[in-house]
Design a protein around this nucleic acid. Sequence first.
RNA 1: GUAGCCAUAGCUCAGCUGGAUAGAGCAUCAGAUUGCGGAUCUGGAGGUCGGAGGUUCGAAUCCUCUUGGCUACACCA
Length: 589
Amino acid sequence: MLQKIKMRWKATVEQHLHNLAEKTLGKSELIKDIPLVVQVPPKPELGDVAFPLFAYAKPFRTSPQKLVEQLIASLNESGDLPAGTLLAAGPYLNVKIDTAELANELETAIRNRKEQYGHTSSMADKRVMVEFSCPNTNKPLHLGHLRNDAIGQSIAAILKANGADVHKVNLINNRGVHICKSMLAYMKFGNNETPESSSVKGDHLVGNYYVRFAQWEKEDPTALEQAQTMLKQWEDGDPEIVQLWEKMNRWTLDGIKQTYDKTGISFDTYYYESDTYKLGRDKVASGLKANVFYKESDGSVWIDLAEIGLDKKVLLRKDGTSLYLTQDIGTAIARHEDWPFDSLIYVVANEQSYHFKVLFHVLQKLGYDWASDLHHLAYGMVNLPEGKMKSREGTVVDADDLFDMLAKMATSDILEKGREEDVKDVQQTSEAIALGALNYYLLQVNPLKDMIFNPAESLSFNGNTGPYLQYMGARISSMYRKYVESGTPVDTISFDGSLLNLEEERELIKSLADFEETVKQAATNLDPSVITAYLYDVSRKYSKYYHDYPILKAESKSLIKARLTLSLMVLQVLRNAYELIGIPFLETM
RNA sequence: GUAGCCAUAGCUCAGCUGGAUAGAGCAUCAGAUUGCGGAUCUGGAGGUCGGAGGUUCGAAUCCUCUUGGCUACACCA
């Protein structure tokens, strides 16, 4: 909405630049290829839109400052300008836009579109598949998964908000030696323990045996060999092994799904490696026939990656069994058959960049033209202030433990502030705060970058955090309740945007009007941190405004109406933005 | 060794396609509450944007080189 106004101004200024070029230079071709840059001035008093004119100085053979003066004169002569005021700011031509008109437009838009406000159609009719999470079934989720999940879930929401048809998929890594390790340890040391018998969440129980295996491996050098034997038995369909595999997989998946529920993660389709790993084999066989691949003398199948500047890569072992890459080929093809997509986004750690480079290339060579629609959204590692998470050193932060710790912390805060009566359900509220804290912390960093997760800092409810944002929503909600209790005295008065002319109000209106653009940019960049930054900016602006000016006690009824409406618009936009990054909205907290 | 990613305040992070005096939070120092939720707000201090060249009217941003860190380059997933 703000963007539209800016573009209108841009077109107007461009037109006048050309007129000016005709008039003073005799020809406008000289400036035809110089793009007019649109910016935001660094300070509010400098206006709302800025056009730097440096680049035009040379063809006009004058200083940018003088050009600004001439341009303003030209613009002022024309009676047909968008609403606003022109400002000469040195080499910049600035515009202070008329926010009264914008406020009215904004009010209508938000009233009509409500939770849809901010949604765009920039990706309408695009079918996008998003793959994320992809846990192993030998242990519970850890902090790294939480970042993956948060990014995947958020990207899906953001794309959807831009009109895309989004399909979220998970790929369960449920086969391989690592899975057999926990199975083997369970067989040896399990004593038929079950999640029910020991009251341990299934994924944690299986994870305990994975750890147990690592201990046992140190004592018994044949442990790994035994695990490999078990894998062979599994592949051969040994009924006893398969039964155990099914049982333990179910335990893990049930546990992981509980974690998903708690953290607001969901999928449209689950794929299982055990179902798809064979598919890739056939595709490699046909690729071999088509001479895309070649066979070594020992029978293994390879691809030469010289074309993309890489070495050779194995696709099938000499015994014909498939590898990680092989099965990902099959999985991709199966997915495209199941749900033909325009684009498939893999949310996977950046340490696998090589893998995806190869995967995409192989699919290309196999003749799938949609291979160019595959995208690896690589994200960085999550480290701890003490250093890296290492499973071998036991410094991995468990997802459930972390979440519970956050929730407990929130609870003690609620009790400390004596708010248990107001929030009604303390447990539910605590979990909502914990989730807000977690998602905001994980998403505020550009996905690409490694980040440091500081548990102590994430537990803080001050500053640039999820709970701070939730608090803004709760405060506005509280104010609105108070208004309703008072008998809705200004409900019949109509909203008048021209009353909102404080600098703080203009800034808020501009921000709210820019939400659509923000949502679009988040999708273009595939970056939820665009939304978190926006949310924090709006919240901070509103906090200051709310702190400095009375809303319900403003001096006139029409001003109360205007400010209350602005506050409710802020609330609506906050809620719509929360939705995109997994921050639960709370009426009270 | 080869390739990719990263480097901004003491710490954690922003900085959109190059543009005005590089911004937040935490920590630190100093303030604000007869109020619509103080889980708030205001101000101070804190920077050679890893380093060196280059392109440009103009560079944290683009190019080259360089230093440091992380990751990958498995018949593991």
